[in-house]
Design a protein around this nucleic acid. Structure first.
Lengths: 209, 209
DNA sequence: TGACTTCTGGATCGATTAGTATAAAATTAA
DNA sequence: TTAATTTTATACTAATCGATCCAGAAGTCA
């Protein structure tokens, strides 16, 4: 926030939002500086590099912004104010809804925008992998909480359940890209959650002993 | 197959296999001609274009080759010689195993190599989307067969079940890239298939009326 | 006003992009 | 041996890549 000097001629936040759209739609590698600058209000290269150090720095900013906005749907997975099963179900439904909205690119930016990239940009890919790992750890904690609560039996294969829900969650991105309607995915979530009941029934049986 | 002329100094099939590795790992856009030529045995640009018209034509050849080799794991979904449930389960398990093998890039080429790309290469993306659509139709036929067989009730929401299994199937690619072990995904498949029993139980109940 | 600070337009950087032109090399067929 | 055919090496396009330089514009502050 400079107090002196010539004021910036474009809105920085809007520019980041426009960049997010492009990275989300086309991925990091396939989004060019020329495209970015055009979408950010036809700003010059000098203006771009003055405001955002580099393409990579802008992308990191976009990822942060994504996590704080659209990515909030994943917060359900670590919401301990609701029961574990409801947390997972809500997280899945909100993710499916968000990723199929037509007001922005389809799918999840964290899954799609650098799942493949050139060897030089491998750290970008790893950065997104770390973000996915964060969500995975929330999911794991959520299921561990269910076991601790007695909702799921002690014998529950936690890694298996994490893989089950995470695989589905990540699959939503490609499904959304393939224009599978929200309603179909939402109905699939309902069905997917029935495995929770299959597992929890075992605890219920044991409690009757 | 030319009968005359100077013989090709490199093995065409091996070159396509090497190109497949690169496209699989880095995606269409992020794989450069220079990388391709280096991996294909340090062939010259002239040799490349003489043997494979263009980067795009090579990619199409790679996709065909992929479908006829690694992609065969999806054939289970349209194998009518085994019951529908077994067909889906086998397709998922084989896909998970293939995609987690370390002898080649992780995940599925059809899902990963052009899920994002530049606007100019959108037809490449659509080409892969069509291939995924083919698999989706096999899955749909498979489930329709189960309904026809009475394995699943007439009331079964087919689009929902297709979405359930397809979302999981496509999610395997990202899971594999994130180094989730095969064992976890395989165990998740076992659990996922339990929803089939939940649904088929309804038919079973009705048959007892 | 003038000093200071920041941003912008425009030209440009070297490197890399996919793809080509040309002619020699290496083969088969006549 | 010669003609026809195909691949090769080498050099080279024009365009684009991300990024930089510099001079001037447009502000704030003393």
């Amino acid at each position: 926030m400079p107090r002196t000097g010539r004021p910036r001629a474009f809105n920085r936040d809007e520019a980041v939002a426009a960049a997010m759209r492009l990275f989300w739609e086309h991925g990091f590698d396939s989004t060019s500086l020329a495209q970015l600058r055009a979408a950010m209000g036809d700003i010059s290269a000098a203006s771009f590099y003055a405001a955002f150090e580099s393409k990579e720095a802008l992308f990191r900013e976009v990822v942060d912004q994504y996590i704080e906005s659209y990515g909030q749907v994943s917060e359900s997975f670590r919401d301990e104010s609701i029961p574990p099963k409801a947390a997972i179900e809500q997280g899945l439904r909100r993710s499916a809804r968000m990723q199929t909205e037509r007001s922005h690119p389809l799918g999840c930016l964290l899954v799609l925008s650098a799942v493949t990239c050139s060897p030089e940009q491998n750290h970008i890919r790893e950065m997104l992998a770390k973000e996915r790992e964060r969500v995975r750890s929330w999911m794991k904690n959520c299921i561990e909480r269910a076991v601790a609560n007695g909702e799921l039996p002690d014998s529950t294969d936690i890694a298996m359940l994490v893989a089950l829900f995470e695989t589905f969650l990540q699959g939503i991105s490609t499904q959304a890209r393939d224009h599978v309607p929200y309603e179909a995915i939402d109905a699939a979530i309902t069905q997917l959650m029935s495995v929770w009941d299959v597992l929890s029934a075992k605890t219920g049986d044991r409690s009757k002993i």
